[in-house]
Computed example of a mutant assay.
Amino acid sequence: MESNEPLYVIPERYRKIENLHIVFWLLKDLCWVMLWRPLGLVMIVPTIGAAALITWQTRHIKSELLHNIAVFFWIIANAYWMITEFFTTDDSLRYYAVIPFSIGIVAIAYYYIGLRFAIKK
C-alpha cells in the first residue's frame, strides 16, 4: 500500500529507551499501588531520568519535544503525588502536583493551539 504521506522514523536506540521508560513507569506505579515505598522511591529516578533523556533526544523535533516535556512534568507530578501518599496524612499536600501537571498542559496547549494555529496561517 503506497502513500504520499511522509514517514515518521526515529532511531531504534530512541525507541528502546522509550519502551524501557514505560517499564520503569509501570513499575513505579505498581509500587505506589502496592505501597512498596522503598522500591517506589527508587523507581522515581530511572523513570524521570528516562523521561529527561527522551525529552533531550527529541529537542530538535518541536512536536515531540513539547509532548515529551508534558510527559516529563506528568511524571514529576505523579512522583510527587506518590511521595505525599507514602509519607504524609495531609491530603492537601498532593494538590501541589497541580503545578507540574499544569506545566505539562501548557506545553501541550502551546503545541496544539499556538504552534498549530501559527502553522495554518
Rank of each mutant, 00 (worst) to 15 (best):
T88F: 03
N78F: 09
I105K: 05
F72W: 09
A52M: 12
L53M: 14
V71L: 12
I69C: 03
N78L: 09
S102A: 14
I105H: 09
T58Q: 11
T89Y: 11
W74S: 05
G104C: 04
A107R: 00
F117R: 13
L93D: 01
I75N: 06
A52D: 10
I61K: 13
T84A: 06
F101C: 11
A107S: 03
M82I: 09
S92Q: 07
A51V: 01
Y96I: 04
T58H: 12
D91S: 14
E64N: 15
F73T: 07
S92N: 12
R94M: 13
A70P: 01
L93Q: 04
K62A: 13
V106F: 02
M82D: 02
W81R: 10
L66E: 02
A77I: 01
I113Q: 06
P100W: 02
V106A: 05
R94D: 10
F72T: 10
H67P: 13
Y111F: 12
M82V: 05
F117Q: 14
T88C: 03
A51T: 02
I99V: 15
I76K: 01
G104P: 04
Q57W: 13
L93R: 01
T58W: 03
T88G: 02
I83P: 04
A97G: 10
T55K: 05
L93K: 04
W74G: 03
L53D: 11
A109D: 12
G114V: 01
I69K: 00
N68M: 04
G104H: 03
I113E: 08
L65I: 04
H60L: 12
G104M: 02
E85H: 13
Y110D: 07
I75Q: 10
A52Y: 10
I48M: 01
H67V: 14
R59K: 06
H67C: 12
W74N: 08
L66S: 01
R59A: 09
W56T: 09
M82L: 06
A97P: 00
T55A: 07
S102M: 13
I113H: 09
N68V: 04
Y112H: 13
Y96K: 11
T89N: 13
D91H: 11
F72G: 02
H67E: 14
S63L: 11
G49I: 13
E64L: 11
